[in-house]
Design a binder for these strands. Structure first.
Lengths: 238, 238
DNA sequence: GTAGAACGTTGCGCTAAGACAAATTGTCTG
DNA sequence: CAGACAATTTGTCTTAGCGCAACGTTCTAC
């Protein structure tokens, strides 16, 4: 009954694999080859840290497969999730914004495959490879926009709207079509959702129960499927 | 009793004026001269929009004198203040992050002097002037970090802590030493503070009244002076 | 299989802070 | 200086949603 997810293996590193990823999309095969030769590839189990907040930013990373949760931990021990990163994006690019330590912790949300490079190569890549920096700054810009939206949301919306929004964002960015709707493509608990929306797992649980009764979502343990996104949009705007 | 603030005049645009500002600090006089020649200088009254959210980002700006409030307005009409920008920073740099419309509205918090350039020059400056892009990306990075902090704050802290934090940030970034403490260097209302901290003007008013009784702050209409920053730090961490 | 842990659900009471209301004070304009 | 308006203060009432507690369910390890 219970499918065992296939164990992801380190892929043969192939230029064509990277060719369509934003940071590399404008590069020649030969250039990608060079970049690949300088990369380290590694598989991470689910739920482990790729790098920790505050640690010296000596490498930067690209997520080849899987999902990563970027979290910050307050002095009082509360966790807040900043964002989820899907495969194909750079992460840990502190160097790009003039930091020399990571501003947050990156944890794998699923088993993941990650490439990484020594930080000193950053400047080289920016200088040598056309489009590399533009594309990555667009990523930074998008994240800034996302965070702005989060602030506006948290400032003006009720908990129910925020949770609805978070679900919508998750299925947009990391959704996978299934028979009865769109499923969030990685294991996510009530606690996780509450850390995304600045509320408690109890409140999230109550909301999801309610929505499930009304047929808007379906959820198993650690799995959430949105069956009626349109109704969620309604709620998020109410 | 009431000093009339001097009317700011358009300054004679001088290279040495810009030489110490981060985006230009690494440039030659000659290069700065070129940039200046391409700039338009303009004075804005207090409380007017420099550019509006959603408008095509056809220019980018540098604040030469004054303060600017960056706000977003929700569909329901609520205003949320994203940040305050002090003199010496670039703003409206949508182009830097691959946007072609402004993601927020910039309003002057005081009378201000602003330089601006047509957006098409952005790429030229990035390509031609060493350090120009690095410095501005650091600005973007700092704003991203700020917004991250805001999200964490709003997710984990009580209103009282958030307002204390906001005041501390304001006096750090835009504070002016006065006889009895540090004053926020531009007119700011309870309403403004509430839009910064995701609360209501009533709650802010109560908090300030309480702090004033305890001797931590002093406030006149539209003016706030922090007389005991250390105690505010205590509150912000409580 | 069984024990224990991790995850999820639900009920109840409480409180921080928002909503509403009304009065006061300061500022600007003609 | 009167009148209008903007900003602030303060009081009372209400409620969203948090904290706590108890219990159910699913998964994992041995």
């Amino acid at each position: 009954m219970n499918e065992i997810p296939p164990r992801r293996t380190l892929p043969r590193l192939d230029e064509s694999l990277l060719k369509h990823l934003p940071p590399f999309s404008k590069l020649e095969r030969r250039e990608i080859r060079t970049i690949l030769d300088q990369a380290t590839s590694r598989r991470y189990e689910e739920g482990v840290a790729i790098f920790d907040e505050g640690a010296p930013a000596d490498r930067f990373f690209m997520l080849l497969d899987g999902y990563v949760r970027v979290v910050r931990i307050t002095p009082t021990g509360d966790q807040v999730t900043a964002l989820h990163i899907p495969a194909g994006q750079l992460l840990g690019i502190a160097k790009a914004i003039g930091r020399d330590s990571y501003p947050a912790t990156a944890m794998t949300a699923t088993e993941s495959i990650v490439l990484s490079w020594p930080a000193r190569l950053w400047d080289t890549y920016v200088a040598d490879y056309e489009g590399f920096s533009t594309e990555t700054y667009n990523t930074v810009g998008n994240r800034l926009g996302e965070m702005n939206n989060r602030v506006v949301e948290m400032a003006t919306q009720q908990v129910e709207q925020r949770v609805a929004n978070a679900l919508l964002r998750l299925i947009n960015q990391t959704g996978r079509k299934v028979s009865d709707g769109i499923e969030i493509d990685f294991p996510i608990t009530r606690q996780d959702l509450s850390e995304l929306t600045a509320t408690t797992l109890h409140t999230v649980s109550r909301l999801l129960s309610g929505w499930e009764k009304r047929g808007l979502v379906q959820s198993k343990r650690k799995r959430i499927t949105v069956t009626n996104p349109h109704a969620l949009v309604e709620i998020s705007q109410a």
